[in-house]
Design a protein around this nucleic acid. Structure first.
Lengths: 341, 341
DNA sequence: TTGTAGGCGTTATCAT
DNA sequence: ATGATAACGCCTACAA
């Protein structure tokens, strides 16, 4: 494409009878350049249609001002909120984002990581695929000391930087809220326990039960992939149970909503017969009837924070440690789905 | 960052007593290289921890295998679906995406375009900000013949490639459906008329009214920014109207949903007193009660298509024209919000 | 089948 | 305040 000659700093230099070095400096607003020459150069650059060549300068500088982002899925409100925050923070700091999705596959995640590596991103932001077991695909980054920041779905290993919410505490809180309201048989819908977000929430759920003197029952833990269908499958299971739960705590709002809808269709009264709590504060939580009690997840802030932490590392001259856990505040949002009239 | 020496093809060449040229060729699987040397080289590359330097090769090749994407907002389900499609198509073809958001501002859009230009993206995918008036900020691209593909929000000018749905027809269809159901006072909620998506839908709405022998009334056209608040403001307006509409057609599902909720709270029966139709087939349309009649918007496919069209241009040796309009099929999805019992 | 050599555009170092 | 020069790592026309 576009095979017309590109204008270089040499062209500008020649035109003005200067050296390329001077032009280069002027274009970067180097202090040691005469103001007038600077102006002349900038003027000429504009006129000639010069554009800076990032490759060439990256080649010299070994820095790309590009961050890699790998997420399980792009197409969720939750994730797009995080990305919006990342993009804003990155662009404010003069960085760009290269975004790829693993589609919950460890293999595609590994491929993405490879690509990011070859694109020479300055740092990596990653939220792990549900099925990822080994982090060895990150070795290229870790061994070259290219900083990695995990967000949302992290991994509990040493020397890891992560930005998360307190999943244990959030789940504990919402479950405790349910028990405090008198609910005793609380079904918990969750995802792959490999991921902290799910295992921690299960832990919080169990702890709250224990604190309320309720025995945990395996039958009341429903593990699935947290899709819309998961909600429907959970509803079907509930409808078949002889001893039904009096409340459901789902690890995301979508499952909660679909489960509610399915149960409502079957004639179950919500929240009278079964109360509901979700997670994320997704837009649908404010639309479903009754509105869903949930945990507000600060996605935008998480995105911003993750990028800022990463860029922080990049700006440190001598990195001594790249370990740092940021835990963001998440809060309980009470709505009608847990309030019996 | 990572100041350890990078392994280059020279290092590999030296190690094996070969020339860098041979190594370069071997690494790209050049046919004219001995199979054995190839193997040796690939082996050595792996052992030494060699990684290909894209800058250096881009500098030579003048190709980045990166596409720029500029969208109004990242944080909507609609947009993230498109991006998911783009990412998939791009990664299949060996391309990466650099994504930026204009936040509906012409100025930030221009900045983003500049950045993409300097990053030397091979092509640009753009959905225009609501307020963008002039396309002159695209000049750097057009004048260098770097292909641009507009998607969703395009601009009706010559020599433009776009991937859209038929907004006129979609709006015509859904409005006609309403008139065929006997609705006569149909309020239309829409966005900035600068954008094709809104102006075309308004056109479709008016045409369907005309075809049904209904006179268009200015009072029944509500223009706003299509946010959640727009829905609420529309509801407030409706509540104040002496002659209320019997149906509402909103240009997105979010506004429709929020308008519905607000009216329901005020005691309005839906669809009995006022029926509702939306646009996009957003997840909330299946959650709001009554479920929302809407237009299914093929976001994922649009993303894939836009990328494939763009890459198609990049692969054409001699571009003769870069004008091509792809119109994707969108369809009416009828749900309860328009069906009086 | 493999090697030589020059250049892609920028920037940092050293010199003036 | 400005200039000369080399180097970043790769690729390819040409030569052998």
């Amino acid at each position: 494409m576009s095979t017309e000659k590109e204008v270089t700093i040499y062209d500008i230099a020649q035109q003005l009878g200067l050296s390329a070095a001077t032009v280069s400096r002027a274009l970067k607003d180097h202090p040691a350049i005469n103001k007038n020459t600077k102006k002349k150069i900038q003027q000429a650059a504009k006129e000639l249609g010069y554009r800076h060549n990032n490759f060439a300068s990256n080649l010299r500088n070994k820095k790309t001002f590009t961050l890699g982002v790998i997420v399980p899925r792009l197409s969720s409100y939750f994730m797009s909120t995080i990305l919006a925050g990342m993009e804003l923070a990155a662009s404010k700091a003069g960085y760009n984002l290269i975004i790829a999705q693993s589609l919950e596959s460890e293999e595609k995640e590994a491929q993405n990581i490879q690509t990011m590596f070859h694109k020479r991103v300055d740092g990596l932001l990653i939220s792990l695929a549900a099925t990822t077991r080994s982090l060895s695909h990150l070795l290229p980054f870790t061994s070259k000391k290219i900083p990695i920041v995990f967000f949302d779905r992290t991994e509990n290993i040493p020397d890891t930087t992560s930005v998360t919410i307190d999943n244990f505490f959030s789940a504990y809180n919402i479950t405790k809220y349910l028990t405090s309201k008198g609910f005793k048989r609380i079904l918990h819908v969750s995802g792959n326990k490999l991921r902290n977000v799910y295992s921690e929430r299960i832990r919080g759920y169990k702890q709250a039960l224990a604190d309320a003197g309720i025995k945990f029952e395996e039958e009341l833990l429903f593990i699935d992939d947290m899709s819309e269908d998961t909600g429907i499958r959970a509803a079907e299971k509930i409808l078949k149970m002889k001893k039904k739960p009096d409340a459901v705590f789902s690890s995301n709002d979508t499952c909660a909503a679909y489960c509610m809808m399915h149960l409502k269709t079957a004639g179950v009264k919500i929240p009278e017969e079964i109360a509901f709590a979700g997670f994320n504060n997704d837009p649908i939580s404010k639309v479903i009837e009754p509105n869903l009690t949930t945990i507000n997840y600060p996605g935008f802030i998480m995105g911003e924070t993750a990028v800022n932490v990463l860029i922080g590392y990049l700006n440190e001259e001598h990195i001594t440690k790249v370990t740092n856990s940021v835990v963001l505040r998440s809060e309980l949002v009470v709505r009608q789905s847990t309030e019996k009239k």
